[in-house]
Amino acid sequence: MGLNRKDLLGIKDLSVGEIQLILETAEPMKDIIRRQIKKVPTLRGKAVINLFYEPSTRTRTSFELAGKYMSADTINISTSASSVVKGETLRDTGKTLEVMGADVVIIRHSASGAPHILAKHLSASVINAGDGFHEHPTQALLDMFTIREKKGRLEGLKVAIVGDIMFSRVARSNIWGLTKMGAEVRVIAPATLLPPDIEKLGVKAYTSIEEGLCDVDVVMVLRMQLERQQKGLFPTIREYSRLYGVTAERVRLARPDALVMHPGPMNRGIEIAPDVADGVQAVINEQVTNGVAVRMALLYLLTGGGNPHEAVN
């Protein structure tokens, strides 16, 4: 059984079964990455296009390699300009790619909802690679994959997400995914970076990092966008780091076997202390590897694939 959907726009719309299917399919995909010759013919003849309206190295490369390892033809289109500046609408750009034969369009965009506009107008599959501060579903899937791999489960775990919750698509997608999978999610941020009614999403909000980290199984650190300070949402980077930086001392408040995660790119010394980022509890590099596996699984499932063992053999 494949995924019975054209697009992946957000975790909010996924069922528990669909999340499980993606995570399970990613396991054999990870084996491919470990092989000497990292190539299977599964997506031969499929065109996968990365349409990135925002700068990204990690996610774009991850999708590109995921496609290439499965023999898809992958193309990257990077544009810093929005459709408005560029003078071509998103719909027209998408349609152009589709008539060239795109099977999957992967879009990253600074405006929330941009992937939805594209999905509405294209018959090709659309994967959301991050839209505004709405969702970043593949990041949440790779995070869940990583936690499950290390902890053997998601259900019953306590996960704390620390940082700029207000403007974080990573936080939102993880909140939807982790709560669906039965984890207990906490968010930790200064009051000015906690979104309105965040607790209605089924999480507990903390403004004290010490309280929030107490006894958690996973510490998920978010990147602090430096422009937030310029908008007056907190006084200085220095004060943010002092009050909310994830230091070794604070990690000790969590369970001794707690994982430390970061979606990257990190501001070392601001939201995460260098010794924590490089410490034994950090799984930040595994997250990156797993990102490729999860994206392979998704490309496979969205293009009609079902049995993961077919894909790897």
């Binding site: 929330s112 909802g113 709405h134 969702e135 939102r172 979104p195 309105p196 009614d197 999403l201």
Partner: peptide, 13 residues
């Protein structure tokens, strides 16, 4: 409008 839905939709409220 600012509230639960602006949080969910990722739009400024």
């Amino acid at each position: 409008h600012e509230g639960y839905y602006s949080t969910v939709y990722g739009l400024k409220g």
